[in-house]
Design a protein around this nucleic acid. Structure first.
Length: 317
DNA sequence: GAGTTTGAAACT
DNA sequence: CAGTTTCAAACTC
């Protein structure tokens, strides 16, 4: 019920974004990071409202080339936006749901000036992680951790001067409107202040520390990876990702039963399952239809390249 | 649904 | 590296 609704809300976005991304690009041709699909490493699909889209299997060459270019400039461009800190998850896979340490941090940090971490404009907010030193945000009200490292709860924040300033303008206007969404708040409640908004399971990144096997990517490829991932089989070595990024990738989120599209740039030749359908039309994961089943961890995200591992088998439940 | 706001990405 | 422009999402009305 109530929670269900909130959940839904959240998932509505998440669903679109993660499951079947639907962009509305008009000028970027979906070949820039502006495009959510492209940024996520997936091809645009029917639901997208983009125009002059080049982010399609048909233009694979272009897509991969562009990706390469972007990555050459910023290797982390396609990496997860949120990464985990070192002391994160000692053991996840068991019950991370309630204890996800939000040591996760936004990769590059945000530069918010007006949203004060209170709106989705903030990438940290979107990722549900705390701001870090890398952030240059002003008046940050991130409850999961401010850039200076203070994770204090809301109380302290409010007192902060900077927050005050910002808060003034913002809060004044929406006073009760903004603030962290209720459903999230609830979660926070029981969790540590640094707990991520909701990526408990969604973005959980697996620390490779675990013994998870390097994982058999075959599984993914077999399963249904056929969808829209960029598989670079054409480019001999599209392996855009270097060992370096591997780290990040490792911490990718765990694909749920339904994995949309994985970016397999790793180039595993063996897994050249790319577009399975002749039409290359990609459909959203079957059972999920973004359906936010309250009881299930809807978490499914696309994974870039090497898919890490799956904690055994979704012990969640 | 149209218009505004916002901050990342891209460009210079 | 910093400033500006471009862009599409988030948000508001």
């Amino acid at each position: 019920m109530a929670s269900g609704k909130s959940y839904r809300r959240r998932f509505e976005h998440a669903g679109e974004t993660e499951c079947c991304k639907r962009c509305n690009c008009k000028k970027s041709k979906c070949l820039k990071l502006y495009c959510e699909c492209f940024a996520a490493g997936v091809y645009c699909i029917e639901p997208c409202s983009c125009q002059e889209c080049f982010n399609k299997p048909i233009h694979e060459d272009t897509v991969l080339a562009t990706r390469k270019q972007i990555e050459s400039r910023n290797p982390l461009a396609f990496a997860l936006k949120v990464i985990r800190s070192s002391d994160s998850v000692p053991e996840l896979g068991q019950e991370e749901s309630s204890k996800t340490p939000a040591s996760a941090r936004h990769k590059r940090g945000c530069n918010c000036k007006k949203s004060s971490f209170l709106k989705k404009y903030c990438e940290c907010y979107q990722g549900g992680v705390g701001c870090s030193i890398s952030c240059r945000c002003e008046g940050c009200k991130n409850a999961f951790g401010r850039k200076d490292g203070s994770f204090i709860g809301t109380e302290a924040e409010l007192d902060e001067e900077e927050a005050e300033a910002c808060e003034k303008s913002v809060a004044e206007k929406h006073q009760q409107k903004i603030e962290i969404p209720k459903n999230e708040e609830q979660r926070l409640d029981s969790a540590l202040p640094t707990t991520p908004l909701r990526l408990s399971r969604q973005m959980v990144s697996l620390p490779f520390s675990s013994k998870n096997k390097p994982l058999r990517s075959s599984v993914f490829s077999i399963g249904g990876s056929s969808s829209g991932l960029y598989t670079s089989q054409k480019l001999g070595k599209p392996n855009i990702l270097h060992p370096e990024s591997k780290f990040e990738r490792h911490s990718q989120t765990v694909p749920e039963d339904e994995m949309p599209e994985i970016l397999q740039g790793d180039g595993s030749p063996s897994t050249g399952v790319k577009t399975a359908s002749p039409n290359s039309k990609r459909v959203c994961p079957p059972n999920s239809d973004f359906g936010p089943s309250p009881g299930r961890r809807t978490g499914r995200k696309l994974i870039l390249q090497s898919i890490p591992s799956f904690p055994s088998l979704t012990p969640q439940h």
